[in-house]
Structures are given as structure tokens and as C-alpha cells.
Amino acid sequence: MNNKTLLRLIAVLFWIPAISACGFTPVYGPNSQIEQQFSGITVQEPANRNEYLFVQNLETHIGRASAPDKMLQYTLYVYEQSMLQGYRAHLVGKVDYKVISMSDQTVLYGGSAENFTAYNIPAETLESLKNDAYSRLMQILADLVYRDLIVKNAAYADAS
């Protein structure tokens, strides 16, 4: 190890405690502002497999509220489009959502997210490929809704 590399290593080791002592907290970590802003939101119960996957993926981001005062209600639309003369299928999904106050049922904010995924159509493994495509689509939609919720919930908190 040459002197230049050794000096860099010493500098990094010196600055690590200084950086951690500055009050820095992770944006998405435990007790972060993001976690706290979703602590009062519960998600509408799922009615089918797609909704279950969507809610499960969304709750990995926002958690489960112990004392909810708001509810995220959603409507999920999914449809298939055959592409490339029957060899490939697109699975298109859209979710419309709104966050309502549980005390007076007023809509606080809402939005929508839309995306797609695709799968090949071989006859021998169609069902497992289709299920995997649905799972991927629900993950994508939950991620999009979560990103939208971060922005809209922060704007709502600033306005109130």
C-alpha cells in the first residue's frame, strides 16, 4: 500500500465518526420522517389475489398503522393484451387511489398509477408465467403509488 492510499484510508476512517455525529438520519430508515408520515394510514382490505399482492407490496413500504386515522382506498384494473401474433402477452395495470379521513370520510388527496409487464406464451408453463407477471405488475404499481404518496402526503402535511 502506498502512502497516498494510506492517507486516504486514514482520512476516511477519521471522517466516518464525524459524519455520523452530525445528526444525519436515513430518509427511509426506522423513525424517519417518511415512516412517521405514513404511521396513521391503513390500506383497504384486498378482495382478490391481485389486490392482496398490491396491498402486501404497498405495506412493505408504508407499514401497518397501529392507530389509523386515514385510509387508502384503491380501485385496481388489470387487463391483458396479446402481442406478436399470440407469442407474447402484455399485462396492463392501473390503480386509482385516494386517502380519506376516517373521522369524516373527506378525501384528503389521491392519484393514479399505470404500468405494464409482459410474458411469453408457451403452452406448457403458461400459468406460472402469468402468475409471475401479475406479481411483478402488482409490485410495480405498489412502488409507483408509494412514490406518489410520499410527494402528496408531504404536500398535504405542509398545507395543513
Rank of each mutant, 00 (worst) to 15 (best):
T125A: 14
R147V: 00
A113N: 09
D148M: 06
L144H: 10
N131G: 08
Y134E: 09
I140F: 13
L144G: 05
E127Y: 13
P122K: 07
D143R: 11
N115F: 10
K130E: 07
N131F: 05
S112F: 13
R136V: 06
N131W: 02
I150C: 04
D148K: 03
Y134S: 03
L144N: 14
E124T: 12
N120M: 14
R136I: 02
A133Q: 05
Y119E: 00
I140E: 13
A133T: 05
Y119R: 08
L129M: 12
N115D: 15
K130V: 00
S112G: 15
T125K: 09
R136D: 13
V151I: 15
N120I: 06
E124M: 10
N131T: 10
T117N: 15
L141F: 14
R147C: 02
T117G: 10
D148C: 10
Y134F: 06
V145D: 09
I121D: 12
P122M: 01
D132C: 00
R136A: 05
E124P: 04
A123F: 08
G111Y: 04
T117H: 13
E127D: 13
L144K: 13
L141M: 11
P122R: 03
Y134C: 00
L141H: 08
L144A: 10
V145N: 06
D148E: 14
I140D: 12
K152W: 04
L149M: 13
Y134T: 02
Y134H: 09
P122W: 01
Y134V: 03
R147D: 12
I140R: 13
E124H: 06
E114S: 15
N120V: 11
F116E: 14
N115K: 09
Y134N: 04
T125P: 01
V145P: 08
E124A: 11
V151W: 05
S112V: 01
L126K: 11
A113L: 08
D148F: 04
E124W: 05
N120R: 09
V145E: 08
E114N: 10
N120C: 04
F116Y: 14
Y146R: 02
I150H: 05
L149Q: 01
E114M: 13
A118Y: 02
M138G: 07
L129R: 15
Y119T: 00
A142S: 14
R136G: 01
K152V: 07
E127V: 14
A142Y: 03
Q139M: 04
K130C: 00
G111P: 03
T117C: 10
V151R: 07
N115E: 12
M138F: 06
R147M: 11
L144V: 03
Y134I: 01
P122A: 02
A133M: 07
L137Q: 04
Q139D: 12
R147E: 13
E127G: 01
K130M: 03
L141T: 03
V145Q: 07
S135C: 00
L126Y: 14
A113E: 08
K130Y: 14
S135I: 03
E127R: 09
K152G: 06
K152A: 13
A118F: 01
P122Y: 04
G111C: 11
L137Y: 05
N131Y: 06
K130F: 03
S135Q: 12
Y119I: 00
N131L: 10
E124R: 08
Y146P: 04
D132G: 06
Q139S: 12
D143P: 10
Y134W: 01
D148I: 06
Q139W: 02
Y146T: 01
M138E: 15
Y119P: 00
